[in-house]
Computed example of a mutant assay.
Amino acid sequence: MKSNQNYKAEAGFTLLELLVVLVILGLLAGLVGPRLFGKADAAKVQTAQTQIQMLKSGLLTYRLDLGKFPSEQEGLKALNSPPSDERQRKLWDGPYLGDELPMDPWGMPYQYKPGSSQPQGFLLFSYGADGKRGGEGLDADIGYLPEG
Score class of each variant (00 low, 15 high):
residue 147 E to F: 01
residue 63 R to I: 08
residue 93 D to P: 02
residue 54 M to D: 08
residue 48 A to T: 14
residue 79 L to E: 05
residue 58 G to H: 09
residue 98 G to H: 06
residue 142 I to C: 08
residue 92 W to I: 02
residue 126 S to W: 01
residue 122 F to L: 02
residue 148 G to D: 14
residue 9 A to S: 09
residue 130 D to S: 10
residue 13 F to S: 14
residue 124 L to R: 03
residue 122 F to E: 00
residue 106 W to F: 09
residue 115 G to H: 08
residue 90 K to W: 01
residue 97 L to R: 05
residue 77 K to N: 11
residue 146 P to F: 08
residue 42 A to P: 14
residue 38 G to Q: 04
residue 124 L to N: 06
residue 122 F to Q: 00
residue 3 S to Y: 14
residue 68 K to M: 06
residue 109 P to D: 01
residue 53 Q to R: 09
residue 46 Q to Y: 10
residue 34 P to H: 10
residue 52 I to S: 00
residue 40 A to W: 15
residue 66 L to Q: 06
residue 87 R to I: 09
residue 112 Y to F: 15
residue 98 G to W: 04
residue 22 L to D: 12
residue 18 L to W: 07
residue 105 P to D: 12
residue 147 E to Y: 05
residue 82 P to I: 04
residue 26 G to P: 11
residue 31 L to M: 06
residue 145 L to H: 08
residue 90 K to H: 01
residue 105 P to N: 05
residue 131 G to I: 07
residue 110 Y to P: 01
residue 51 Q to L: 14
residue 74 E to G: 05
residue 92 W to D: 01
residue 110 Y to I: 10
residue 109 P to M: 00
residue 5 Q to Y: 03
residue 19 L to H: 05
residue 129 A to R: 13
residue 11 A to H: 05
residue 63 R to T: 08
residue 44 K to S: 06
residue 90 K to I: 01
residue 18 L to V: 14
